[in-house]
Nucleic acid binder design. Structure first.
Lengths: 217, 217
DNA sequence: TGCGTTGTATAACGCCGCTATGGGAAGCTG
DNA sequence: CAGCTTCCCATAGCGGCGTTATACAACGCA
């Protein structure tokens, strides 16, 4: 008395196909019927492997955070120049948003399906750690979590303006840089040293150069 | 040969009812059928007075900006202390978001239906003007539009974190304050004078005190 | 009074998320 | 190797959505 075995690849296929649909066709394409058709199954599969479409969307959100975390993982801790490290994390954040706007919107601009979302908070913790090193090294003053919140808030605000086409890419990059500079120097950072570190970190990660079209589709 | 006259109040009633539905029941309540039922007409009215539901939503967005602009209008230009004026504008922004979270979400976190949205840009211009006065007065350095963008980005980021329940009200207010302080002082503002002006402006407008529940529903 | 014009109520179309149902595949049991 | 139990999933249906076609009712000028 053993039942028919579930397809171990089906759940993964649904999530990855949903993520692809989001990236390629935008959030409107994320319907149960279209997802099932794209995978080559019926809508019932969604209810066999998930509680409903909402859980699929939650998994897509997690997948987005996983990809973002993978990008952040490219940034190595730099005890010698923690402000440069923060600039690298910022560049990674910005690059992630510009490269995959649909994903960014879905992850950061919609109310999270899973309020816990430990994987999302993990990416924030990565920033808190970097900021804590900078504060310990005396690069600027503050409480790590709160200062990290402010870096994040600024980055998110600039990205949001960019994605709403209220800023072109060049303006967005400039504001992004200056906001980081303002926070560091505003809380005690040395102006010249801060500018040098931010430039160093940004160069290391490499923000996408604004060539050709400078507003998102 | 004169046809049946259109009801001059119908268009307004639809927009205002839609706004009320958004405020009281959230964005999911903004359906054609429910809106028509609430107004006491049929769904066809939406197509008689608008091109479709999208145009209604666009008008709701404009209405939200109009209410926000009315709040900003309470802030009088203060040539003697432009940084206090910026703090007042910030407090108005924050209050607007906290008081009407559904409206804030709808206006600032969803892609605008009408990309022009001159009324929305008008509210931003109000900030640019205040920032320009501060720069002219030597309170900090920069180009008005870009610096205003950065204030806006920071405010929006903090509000977003608050509405996502990742910050409680007290944390949000603190980050809000410190971000403004950081931008001013980071670009040349005198620390003590900036802190005093920000406190003065905030006191004048009055950010809602965090009493009782400190996270949005 | 009649006619032309136009608002709008009703019903229908094709979507949506979701569920009820039933057939068939799978593997343990005798 | 049958048989039976179990569960996957294809099909079809339900109530919702935005939108559209149609028919009727209201209105003002001739």
């Amino acid at each position: 008395m053993s039942p028919r075995a579930p397809d171990p690849e089906m759940r993964t296929a649904l999530i990855e196909t949903a993520a692809r649909l989001l990236v390629e066709h935008g959030p409107d394409a994320l319907t149960t019927r279209r997802l099932a058709a794209e995978v080559g199954t019926s809508t019932m599969a969604v209810y066999t492997y998930f509680s409903g479409m909402d859980e699929v969307l939650g998994e897509v959100q997690k997948e987005g955070f996983r990809r973002f975390a993978a990008l952040l993982a490219r940034v190595e801790p730099d005890p010698a120049d923690p402000v440069a490290e923060i600039a690298e994390l910022g560049a990674a954040y910005f690059t992630n948003a510009v490269t995959n706007p649909h994903f960014y919107r879905f992850i950061f601009m919609e109310k999270p399906v899973d309020p816990e979302l430990e994987v999302g908070l993990g990416t924030f913790q990565r920033l808190v750690d970097g900021v804590a090193r900078a504060i310990d090294a005396g690069c600027f003053r503050g409480e790590p979590e709160r200062r990290a919140t402010q870096f994040w808030a600024g980055a998110h605000g600039v990205v949001t303006l960019y994605l709403a086409a209220l800023l072109d890419l060049q303006e967005a990059i400039t504001s992004f840089r200056e906001l980081a500079y303002g926070i560091c120097v505003g809380f005690g950072g040395d102006p010249d040293a801060t500018a040098a570190s931010l430039a160093r970190g940004e160069k290391r990660f490499g923000i996408p150069a604004p060539t050709g079209a400078t507003t998102p589709s």
